[in-house]
Write a protein that binds this DNA or RNA. Structure first.
Lengths: 201, 201
DNA sequence: GCACTTGTTGTACGAGTGTCCAACAAGCAA
DNA sequence: TTGCTTGTTGGACACTCGTACAACAAGTGC
């Protein structure tokens, strides 16, 4: 029958930025579902509803795609924390508490994000460009925390160490929370972090 | 002499335990050198000077081998910390400090170990047996810390949270130290952890 | 000497990998 | 319309992957 020859439009052109974005989001979903080992060019292409060749057209390789996905997810985390800070009002201490609480709440603390982090970490030691990206994003995270500590009245000389400590504490709690959710609760993690900050201020 | 017919002994039988051990150590070396992505059955077999088929004879698959390697490396870390505790003498506070200092010193804090940890973490979410192994080893680490805190006179009701906090802090500092060694030094990490413990006691 | 068990080898297999590329589809310029 | 650029396809390529397995080597018991 000569009807409906093109039932499925096999070809749909998209805005380059939109396509990049959809590939990145597909990568995040595949990482969350399959883990780092099951994340291949083909799996990502299927997830994005696109042919495998297109991945190579937008990204130099799978490593670059993972790095872009990490940057994107880190941006989402950053915005989620900004939103929490916005809701917390103007009191500096309340803002700091909101920062901590948001870190242990969805969408920041979720086992699905963990796979993206792990896939990215596994590239840091072998690829210097990715190591640089990590350094920058870590520095940005710490700088924001230092600013919040300054608003709380902490003297400038102490801020650096305090920010390193709090970042490490949050990261460690976050990691353990994702890896073995039974060991302690998000509520407990928040309480631990807040009392550590009390001690530092 | 009868002409050295067998210049290279292609076949050497080893004690089962010794062979297991040599495969595990080869895996640790490959993980350190190539990262998780480059760690295959063949690469491990070459590193151990053994045919690829032998890996399957001792381990059910590469995941089991990675899990065994993690357990082995964790054992080394544990012994390194025990040795540090032994050198610290009997003063409870000095022992706690030794615990912290050893955590940021070779062989515990080394970028080479990181790859083993990451490879293991990447299996936690998809394999329940490995999740259980992680839970057990995390619980053991924390239990030891709780005992040290008890020796320092901390009341039993506070030990659990304090141990969670210190473990997370050490893990977070350790991770960042391995990922971006430029951000802060091992000495600084030790100082941060020790003053956090001061605050808790 | 012989059978028997078992560590060990090397290879073959099918599935999956990343990368490459000729062909095609769509929009834009002239 | 005609040509040109470019997003997109789908498959071919040359791998590498984990696993399975027949064959072999070294002990062990008899």
């Amino acid at each position: 029958m000569a009807a409906q020859v093109t039932a499925t439009p096999a070809f749909t052109r998209a805005e380059p930025d939109a396509r990049r974005h959809s590939l990145i989001e597909a990568t995040a979903r595949v990482l969350a579902r399959e883990g780092a080992a099951g994340t291949s060019v083909r799996a990502i292409a299927v997830e994005a509803g696109v042919s495998p060749g297109l991945v190579g057209h937008y990204f130099s390789g799978i490593d670059a795609l993972v790095a872009a996905t990490y940057a994107h997810v880190e941006g989402q985390v950053s915005r989620a924390i900004d939103a929490a800070l916005g809701e917390a009002g103007n009191d500096p201490r309340a803002r700091l508490n909101a920062f901590v609480t948001a870190s242990f709440r969805a969408p920041v603390a979720s086992g699905e994000l963990l796979a993206t982090w792990i896939a990215f970490w596994s590239l840091v030691r072998s690829r210097s460009d990715i190591a640089r990206q990590h350094d920058e994003q870590y520095a940005a995270f710490r700088a924001r925390l230092e600013a919040l500590l300054g608003d709380c009245g902490m003297e400038a000389v102490h801020r650096r160490r305090a920010a390193i400590a709090i970042t490490a504490l949050i990261d460690g709690l976050w990691l353990e929370l994702c890896l073995s959710p039974e060991a302690f609760s998000a509520k407990e993690a928040g309480a631990i972090a807040r009392s550590a900050i009390d001690a530092l201020l």
